[in-house]
Amino acid sequence: MFDGITPQLLFGQLLIGVINGSFYAMLAMGLAIIFGLMHVVNFAHGAQYMLGAFVAWLLLSTFGVPYWGALILAPLVVAIFGIAMERLILKPIANLDHLYSLLVTYAATLVIEGLIRQQYGSTGLPYSSPLPGGVNLGFMFMPWYRLWVVVFSVVTCLATWLLIEHTKLGAYLRAANESPEVVESFGINVPRMMTLTYGFGVGLAGLSGVLAAPIYQVSPSMGSSLMITIFAVVVIGGMGSIAGAILTGYTLGIVEGLTKVFYPEAANLVIFFIMLLALIFRPSGLFSGTEKS
């Protein structure tokens, strides 16, 4: 069954799995933060990820800002865009059912993608790697940039988890998720905190987009093609579970990579098959109730 599986193939796919898992984890974490703390189903997360990549591309092609500058500037620009979005279209429906936030953010996705497509076309735009070359590990070639993406993603996920679970700010956010009225009665500006939370989650999507730009083509549909998988990751991890989103993101990236080696026909289905099993046997998600939030 495993004839013809060389170490190069195995570790190559494993690396691709870890890379994909890094993006799954970062995007799913942003979604989980937004859903877990604000109860907003942010369908625009993929479009915001794409915006991060586009802003990085624009900064480079128009203003000559290199990747390392874009890594800071693009997430900020996308976060500000997210804050404006929250104020204009999410705040007015804050007291309605979650379904409305899903519909509104889906509509926003179509508008954002349509505008970008009209302006820049559907063809992917190239973004050269800021870290060319790599190292030969003997059993596989490890590109520097991909190694950077994995390390940066792990550090970002860990730092965000620590921020939410182990700081005073995180305690405010978790408390406001349970009872915004009580937290506001302590003198804390909860509406502003929620706006900034959305901005932070969207900024994470933008940051993922910048990381993705040198690996994937920068195109209007790069986010929407990923979003279904990201939602599956969040559902499997447990809606709103930040640790669940991170761990499930990496795990499913690796599982997907290994499936490509051992049973390639199922590679595109394996995540959804796992989601199906999770929904049947543990509908609240694998990691729900295992962390503070």
Binding site: K168, Y172, R174, A175, N177, S179, F186, G187
Partner: peptide
Amino acid sequence: GIFSSLSVRENLTLP
């Protein structure tokens, strides 16, 4: 209004 996701100390020191 005691928060279940917070410890007693976190609840106490939240305001």
